[in-house]
Design a protein around this nucleic acid. Sequence first.
RNA 1: UCCGCAAUAGCUCAGUCGGUAGAGCACGUGACUGUUAAUCACGCUGUCGCAGGUUCGAGUCCUGCUUGCGGAGCCA
Length: 431
Amino acid sequence: MEYIRIIDSKDYVEQKVQIKGWVANKRSSGKIAFLQLRDGSAYFQGVALKSQLGEALFDAITHLNQETAVEVVGTIQEDGRSKFGYEIHIEDLKVLGDSVDYPITPKAHGTDFLMDHRHLWLRSSKQHAIMQIRNEIIHATFEFFYERGFVKIDAPILTGVAGENTTDLFEVDYFGDNAYLGQTGQLYAEAGAMAFGKVFTYGPTFRAEKSKTRRHLTEFWMIEPEIAFCDHEDSLKLQEEYVAYLIQHVLDHCDYALDVLGRDREVLKRYTQLPFPRITYDEAIEMLQKADFDVEWGADFGSPEETYIAEHFEKPVFIMNYPKAIKAFYMKDHPDRDDVVLCADLIAPEGYGEIIGGSERETDYDILREKIINFGLNPDDYDWYLDLRRYGSVPHSGFGLGLDRFVTWVTGNKHIRESIPFPRLLNRLYP
RNA sequence: UCCGCAAUAGCUCAGUCGGUAGAGCACGUGACUGUUAAUCACGCUGUCGCAGGUUCGAGUCCUGCUUGCGGAGCCA
């Protein structure tokens, strides 16, 4: 007899198999009982008949506690009365681990309570679906970049200096010296691009900002590709191809999860149609001023502004060429203008905000050194980074995609905290 | 950090004009052969966030604090 996973049950109809999993819920009548079983791969129901199992076993089954770990032997049946379409007719059941007073009942709970029990909440079907989609997006990321000859390099998490100067850093003691948890792997990715041509990083990044919104985490995961011999235009094309690839992969591989979440596939399909619209920062300012937003040229956009702009497009929209004063020091000046840089943010529709920020990087040693000084940073700290311009500097571009925000958008979630297994927020470090 | 809202049973909430604490669910017992958060009957469940004040009397009114939530700023 074969031990199978629930997700594969369609291949075992009418066969006697073994399932190992947990009892998510149960319902019983006098002579028939339904166990809602989950094994990590999917959820389906087990049917137990008193007439077949005998008094003792049937009685034990109707008294199983929620989240008891069980080993079930039975026959797989196709049945439209089951939500999953397949079910197992139980012939034998063994308890592997009891579960007393499981805190998350199949009724309404508040977010705070659920977050206190995040380690258990991950077992529930909606959270399971979100994490499946997150996993597929990570999978598709590696696939996308490997198919295109990229090398995955690991940026350090502990760093001696700030990557950008705009945000607060988590400070840690490093054998008596100050060190920081990295807020971007980009500078290291640039070193990687000069070694391997095309690289991407995937790792956690940290921002000690006291942000309290549905779009912010203090620890979040970024994917940062960096490509040598690549100008800003090439980078934009890669960005939209990458986003469309991720969405298509989710459509192809996450059917059940999208159903559980009730996400509209037609809306997602729209996001696979290229190219994405592009507007300049100047045009965005004009749009906002016409709509009576109180913004001057030179200001950065807040989220109401971003949402307003995004509402005018059916797909993600690139906003290009921001004023240099509000962007990072490493961005390359626009060839025809001295007040803006070669960069773009990709704003997701439906109010999900910025999901990608990217730019062409400054290649000239003297200009870059001056930019570092103008941003109030110490060029000595960036000596290794300046070396990249000292020895065979070439045009290169890159971008960073915020995985957790991307997952929030694709899953249609309201809040970013459900898009990562264990969110780190201003007021949450447990569990 | 700023603005707004909230805190009552294990969970989700109600609690009128200030007058002796309520419901549903969970859990327990029983009934029920196709349930989909099953249903029905009975039973069990309390430091009303903390500290102080007003009052004959405070879950309710006032002050401070704590914690959480929503939003802003900052950003991916």
